[in-house]
Simulated assay, not measured.
Amino acid sequence: MSQEFLLEVSRLGKDFAPVAFARGPVVRAVQDVSFNIKRGEVVGLVGESGSGKTTIGRMVAQLIEPTSGSIRFEGSETTSLSRRELRGLHARVQYIFQDPFASLSPRMTIGEILTEGLDIQRIGSRSERAAKAAQALASVDLPPDAISRYPHEFSGGQRQRIGIARALTLAPELIVADEPVSALDVSIQAQIVNLLRDLQMRLGLTMLFIAHDLAVVEYVADTVIVLYLGRIMEMAPSRELYASPQHPYTRALLSAVPSPDPSRHANRQILKGDIPSPANPPSGCVFRTRCPVAVDACASAVPPLREGTKGHFKACIRDDLG
């Protein structure tokens, strides 16, 4: 068993073939993605819509199967588990979904939702499951009487708290938080982010935090991975990445983050056009069609993810952008 990392992802790939009887190219949603997560660490996975973030999160949680590559959890491969082994993994890796309403059954009470995972895993007696559900509700600052109510009786922010509580009931070793605040009002987003940060620090949670908002990721993540069209563009400790971004894509994303300091946007970079289709990605560097510093050589070969300063990686052939 690996002593250093809880999760090890190596050369992960995911292709989506056309649905039955449909014509079209294979969609390469994720290509050659590798990263590790230490126990107690929060890794932020950030990128525009269509970059493959959610696909990676679902593969890590084994909600979908990868096409290629390896996922090791506590040193054991998870991509070839039996159904019984997979059920055990799902108790240890929990998922917080983007849409808090769609992820909660309207026919179940909050108590039933919170104890469902415990029922499936056959953990504890009925009274012990109820106690765990009540404890999870309290940890996300919801009142005890919420346990007998239904999802439609709660606001969006409260429903997301319920989703977080559901993930906590099984005391997971890893939580995949898939854009947990993007469907919420801005005023509520800060409350949920603060709650997740507080829970992480108090419970020592290990988390893969997926978002498209770099400002949110900066607040919660120890390490940040910047993804574009299914490939990693840059990966570094959070403070270093925000202080000294090395990839043109990261710099463009950071320059778009709202700031009260006008000087921060003195060299603002505006990305032109939309992210290309993963069914027809550009040759060479997938970012080159929107990159403000691209050269002819960028079309020739896929740039490898190379380490510059210790722990800071970028996938770019330009070494003169430091």
Rank of each mutant, 00 (worst) to 15 (best):
F5Y: 14
F5E: 01
F5K: 04
L7D: 00
L7T: 02
K14S: 03
K14L: 12
V19N: 11
P25C: 10
A29P: 00
D32T: 10
N36R: 14
E41I: 07
I64R: 02
E65D: 15
P66L: 12
E74W: 07
T78E: 01
L81S: 06
R84Q: 13
R84A: 14
E85P: 02
E85T: 10
H90K: 13
Y95V: 15
P100M: 04
G111I: 02
E112Q: 14
T115E: 07
L118N: 02
S125H: 08
P144T: 12
D145N: 15
S148D: 14
R149T: 04
H152E: 09
G156L: 04
R159G: 00
I164T: 06
R166K: 12
A171D: 14
E173W: 05
D185Q: 11
S187H: 09
Q189L: 04
V193Q: 00
M201Y: 10
R202E: 15
D213S: 11
D213I: 10
V217K: 01
D222G: 10
I225E: 01
L229H: 02
M233D: 01
M235C: 11
A243Y: 12
P248T: 09
L253A: 03
L254Y: 00
A256S: 15
S263F: 12
A266G: 07
Q269K: 11
P276E: 10
P282I: 14
C291H: 06
V302G: 02
V302P: 00
P303L: 06
P304H: 06
K310L: 13
K314W: 08
A315G: 09
G322I: 11
